[in-house]
Design a protein around this nucleic acid. Sequence first.
DNA 1: TGAAATGTTGGGGCG
DNA 2: ACGCCCCAACATTTC
Length: 489
Amino acid sequence: MTKPIVVWFRRDLRLADHAALSAAAAADGRPIVSLFVLDDDVAGDWALGGASRWWLHHSLASLKKALVGVGGDLVLRRGKTRTVIADVAREVGAGDVYCSRGYEPWSSDQETDVRDALAAHDIAFKRFAGVLLHDPDQVTTQAGQPFKVFTPFWNAVRRLEVKKPLEAPKRVTVPSKLPKSDHLKDWALLPKRPDWAGGLREMWVPGEESARDLLAEFIDDRMSDYAEARDRPDVEGTSRLSPHLAFGEISPRQCWYAVKSAAGRLTHADKGAEVFLKELTWREFSAHLLHHWPTLPTAAFREEFAGFRWRKDADQLAAWQRGLTGYPIVDAGMRELWTTGWMHNRVRMIVASFLIKDLLLPWQEGEAWFWDTLVDADLANNAANWQWVAGSGADAAPYFRIFNPVKQGETFDPEGAYVRRWVPELARLPDKSIHTPWLAPQEVLDAAGVSIGDSYPAPIVDHGDARKRALAAFDHIKRKTPGKSRTRA
DNA sequence: TGAAATGTTGGGGCG
DNA sequence: ACGCCCCAACATTTC
């Protein structure tokens, strides 16, 4: 039994806590062929966005280096998944192909496809868990149905045992002759003219090692304040693990286990730890929803939203995308996103509310923009969270919950440090005017070098009017079960 | 994981 | 000293 095992890497670009890789490494003396397939067609409309392609490039480079470090290597191939995997497996005379199970709408078909292609050549195919904390088919309500409301889901998940993560294999062996690999740079995942990735390079170090460091740093330095600090875009209160989780450079199990263990050890860390685990469970909840409702990224979950007439306004959409809405907190967020491939979670809610409620533009437009620009773009999180803000989701904010961008700014960025960082043309305004430049007296504007409508736009809508318009537009959408609370916990 | 509108209360200024 | 009014602060309701 020395036939090689092919380990097909997907969104699990790590060595530690990788069940498929560990199983292959534990199979006595059998060489391992680690393979990543770039399949441009599999995801349809959800082909990798620009920021994700940048991240993938560096994550693959990092994975290759890590594999080489333990005696292995990484084979890169571009093409149709089933064909590439079958070709590589036959080429090396593999007996088995292992992978982590995926939960995207196309994953199941894709895996069946691969299984069939391999079965024709008597090669076994085995899937392992590793992308989520728990199998979406195993976590159900008393009635055996998937959860549609977060709080009961959280109450179920928080009690489930999370096993100790697996160590990375100390050593893997490769076949004497490895199949040929594409060159990573030939995949052209990185932007050329224009190279817009400068801000990404400055902000991020993709890869497993960096993910592990971030988690440790979070537990040591930020976890105890996380419950409050995570809501403040002007301080570094979040873990920033999201892109690492999205590409599987770290597993949710590793995060859960480390945070839970640390909470018992550190004093006063329990509240922060619990809130973090809850956030991790939101990720899990979104993935479970997508698994059970594969149309989540395109169609409103609540059918009463199906016929809703969203506005069409290319100019306002462009103003939102570019961070030129005239509302400083919104513009700061959109520019942070464009520059770094990431946006603070509180600000994501604010900009989403603005697009959906103030501009009445379809949430799918925001979803598509985030998909292209976020380094942590994740189909389930993106779809579930946009639908949450829209009010059309499974367990969504009520339609009448409309964020006031001024009040949100003043509450969560009280000195305007976040706005000043990302909207530098407003930097010299006093705190009092930083979230309402259009209301500032002329002499204040002059002193700060701000000219409304010139150096910085006037608000593209009046929030008070926009709020009334949204309430009127959503008026006919009523809850079917008004007695039951459907708000998030 | 909102915010505005509306209602209530209680302290203090003032005739 | 008393009653009246104003209004800030807080609570409740509504969207």
